[in-house]
């Protein structure tokens, strides 16, 4: 039986991610853990996140779990979600500029103010709801239709320095990076655990992924 560890650094609701993974991967043991040894002993790791990046980085430093996440990212298939994705970059514009883990070169930016909406008026920020994801070829997109809708809720998005890392894009006033992939690392801005069928398929794919592209 393989194991997936969800890193618990005190931010947000991990119950939903655990339940969603259990739902699609009956042969997988899912652990919500803040114990470094447990996390590093798992076959796969999920690095989640919600809320502000400032508080996220504080908690990652305080608990030492930022280092653990980096260690896991070097060694095993890892899925980073929402703020967990943003934390991988070098810095974020949020909270007056916040240094992040710096595993991926690039920045986290805020959606511009007053972007025009297609139907008139301006686009709301946060970008909240179901938007289409245009994806590339990657094992984690298996059985997921091109331009499927996933659930997003965020005001900031990642901009990797290397555009080749982008694994999917979404339009919201601008075209932004909805997913990025590098070797054994896969990161998504949307919430697969809240994206019904498409999200569950992605989690199923992750539960079987060997970390190869």
């Amino acid at each position: 039986m393989s194991t997936i560890a969800i890193i618990d650094y005190g931010m947000g609701n991990l119950h939903s991610i655990a339940k969603a993974v259990e739902h699609v991967a009956a042969d997988t043991r899912v652990l919500i853990s803040s114990v470094p040894e447990q996390i590093l002993a798992a076959d796969r790791v999920v690095f989640p996140g919600v809320g502000g990046i400032g508080h996220t980085m504080e908690e990652l430093q305080r608990t030492g779990l930022g280092e653990v996440a980096l260690e896991a990212a070097a060694a095993k298939p890892m899925l980073c979600i929402c703020v967990g994705m943003q934390a991988l970059l070098e810095r974020s514009e949020e909270n007056d500029g916040t240094p992040c883990l710096g595993l991926i070169a690039g920045e986290v930016k805020r959606f511009p103010e007053g972007m025009p909406a297609p139907e008139g008026g301006k686009l709301k920020v946060p970008h909240m709801g179901w938007n289409q994801v245009h994806h590339n070829d990657h094992p984690l997109w298996e059985d997921i239709d091109q331009d499927s809708r996933f659930y997003f809720v965020h005001s900031y998005y990642v901009e990797p320095a290397d555009p080749a890392l982008q694994a999917a894009s979404t339009d919201y006033g601008i075209k932004f990076c909805a997913a990025l992939a590098r070797e054994n690392l896969f990161a998504v801005q949307f919430h697969p655990e809240k994206s019904q069928r498409a999200g569950l398929t992605l989690l199923r794919n992750f539960s079987r992924w060997d970390g190869q592209c």
Binding site: N13, H15, S16, K19, V153, E193, K194, S195, Q196
Partner: peptide, 29 residues
């Protein structure tokens, strides 16, 4: 939250931070 994987909102009687924490921990978004 254990079987429906779309966003859930809970309202009514939310008066303290502890109420929010309890609902989020239970699986509300």
């Amino acid at each position: 939250a254990g079987e429906v994987f779309i966003p859930l909102t809970v309202g009514g009687g939310i008066r303290e931070l502890a109420d929010i924490r309890r609902m989020l921990n239970a699986g509300a978004d």
